[in-house]
Structures are given as structure tokens and as C-alpha cells.
């Protein structure tokens, strides 16, 4: 019964993968005449080593992923533990929390455009009323533009971690808590030494899932900043999109894609190893 799934996936994943590897070893451009797929060996990969823009996009992506996911994990876990107590409001709270994460990411980007637009954004106005000088608007300075993108991502995905934690808490057995309270553990101690370790697998899965998604961030950046100002918010996927679909350098785009894929795969494997080993020790 696996074969149809395998066939379809072979068509939509394995074929493109092989095609892209092949493409990445060639010279292929849709706009420059004469670059019709000549063999280029590892030229495209060599070119990457000297590509400062690619390096910058990797750093931007890394900053985005690490800061956003860390904030989501910490804030989301805290929120989840807090909200877990509100038994009667659970359904309403869940609805509110679900909304940001299921809303179309592109529309999320546009929504925050209404907020942070330098001329008519209500958040820009609110900051001004509070006496915070935004000068050109937060989206128009390299440093603050990335911060806004991270904030938007946290807005969107903090509820995900919170909901996971809430669900995780409901599934916890009662006995360790009973034991802790019999031992006279304080609330803080109970959190630290009983609840958190038990929640760890849930949080771990959620964080890994979020990280793999955040690495592929595109939509919100595309509509909010387009990667600018300068290159300050050009995340990896956006850079590859520019190479492939604005410059039409499909072969170099493929090489960038393959490299990213291998790197992300390696990091995931490493993270997976480390977390499972840690779990084993706990």
C-alpha cells in the first residue's frame, strides 16, 4: 500500500532533487543567451565561497531562526503554563491562540504592514504617542526591520508552543506532582524539577518543528521588507528566490538550494542526536 505514495513522492521530490543536482553543475540562465546548460563542474559551488551576499543571507537567517524560536519557546512555555489553569475559558483561549498561526503567512505580513507602515501605520502612531521616536518607521532601519520580522514571527508562532505545552500538561500523570507537594517542594521547585523535565519532549518537538519552518521563512519577509533595507532582512530563501527568479540564474540558484539543504539536514540530524541523548540522560 506504500507504493502509490512512493510513486507520487518520487515524481514530486526525487525527480526535482536529481534535476536540481544536475542543474547545479551546469551553466543555465533564462535571460543570458548562450547559457543553455553547459557542463560547469563545481563552478557554481566554488562561486558560493566568494559570494558575500550568500554569507550575509546565512547570517541573517541564523539570527532570525535562533532569536525567534528561542523567544517563542520561552514565552510560549510560560504562557502555556499560565493558561493551563483557566479550565473554563480553555475553549475561547484556544480559539484566540489558534488564529495567528493558521492565518495565511502572507496576509500576516500585510497585516503588520498596516501596523508598521511609516506613514499611516497604527503601531507607528502608537509608538510616537508613547514618545518613542521611530524616525523612518521601524521597517526602514536595518536593525529594527529584522527585529520587527522576529516580533511578527513570535506573534504568529508563540501560540503554537503555548498550545503544545497546554496539551502536554493535560497529558502529564498526577503522581509526580503529588509526590512533590508531599515533599514540601515550593511552586518554583515543582516547575523547575518536576514539570519542565516532563514537558521537555513536547517542547523539544515543537522547537525542532518551528526551527525547520523558520529556516524556510519567505512570505512575511517578501511582503514586509522585500529583504531590505539593503540586505538587512534578506533571509536565505529570499536570496535564492532573487537569484533564480529575478536574475534567472537557475543553475546557481540550484547550487545554493542544494547547499542549504545539506546544511539544514546536517544541523537537524545533529540537533536530533543531541536532544535524544539528553532525553536518555534525564
Amino acid at each position: 500500500m506504500q507504493s502509490p505514495a512512493f510513486l507520487v513522492l518520487a515524481l514530486v521530490v526525487v525527480f526535482p532533487l536529481i534535476y536540481s543536482i544536475n542543474l547545479s553543475l551546469r551553466q543555465f540562465s533564462l535571460v543570458i543567451p548562450g547559457r543553455t546548460g553547459q557542463w560547469a563542474g563545481l563552478d557554481n559551488y566554488r562561486r558560493m565561497l566568494h559570494d558575500a551576499d550568500f554569507g550575509a543571507s546565512l547570517i541573517t537567517t541564523l539570527t532570525f531562526v535562533v532569536v525567534a524560536v528561542a523567544l517563542e519557546a520561552v514565552l510560549g512555555t510560560s504562557l502555556g503554563i499560565l493558561l493551563d489553569r483557566l479550565v473554563r475559558l480553555r475553549r475561547t483561549i484556544t480559539s484566540v491562540l489558534l488564529l495567528p498561526m493558521i492565518v495565511t503567512p502572507l496576509i500576516v505580513g500585510l497585516m503588520f504592514n498596516f501596523a508598521f507602515n511609516a506613514q499611516f501605520g497604527y503601531a507607528t502612531w502608537a509608538l510616537e504617542v508613547l514618545g518613542i521616536e521611530t524616525d523612518q518607521g521601524l521597517l526602514n532601519k536595518g536593525s529594527t526591520a529584522l527585529a520587527v520580522l522576529i516580533a511578527v514571527d513570535v506573534w504568529e508562532w508563540l501560540p503554537f508552543i503555548a498550545l503544545m505545552v497546554m496539551a502536554g500538561l493535560r497529558a502529564l500523570p498526577a503522581s509526580p506532582f503529588e509526590a512533590a507537594s508531599l515533599d514540601g517542594a515550593s511552586a518554583m521547585q515543582t516547575y523547575r524539577y518536576v514539570m519542565l523535565p516532563m514537558l521537555k519532549p513536547v517542547i523539544g518537538v515543537a522547537v525542532l518543528f518551528r526551527a525547520t519552518e523558520a529556516v524556510r521563512e519567505f512570505d512575511k519577509v517578501f511582503v514586509l521588507t522585500g529583504g531590505g533595507p539593503g540586505s538587512s532582512t534578506t533571509v536565505n530563501d529570499l536570496y535564492q528566490y532573487r537569484v533564480s527568479f529575478l536574475n534567472w540564474d537557475l543553475s546557481y540558484g540550484a547550487a545554493l538550494g542544494m547547499t542549504t539543504f545539506v546544511a539544514v539536514l546536517a544541523i537537524c540530524a545533529l540537533v536530533y542526536r543531541v536532544t535524544t541523548r539528553m532525553d536518555a540522560r534525564v
Partner: peptide, 12 residues
């Protein structure tokens, strides 16, 4: 130099 006199958000 002209950007000093541009509306906010000229970089986007």
C-alpha cells in the same frame, strides 16, 4: 542627502 527631506519609509 535628499533623503533627509523624504517622507518616512523611503527605504521601503
Amino acid at each position: 542627502e535628499l533623503t533627509d527631506f523624504a517622507p518616512p519609509g523611503y527605504t521601503s
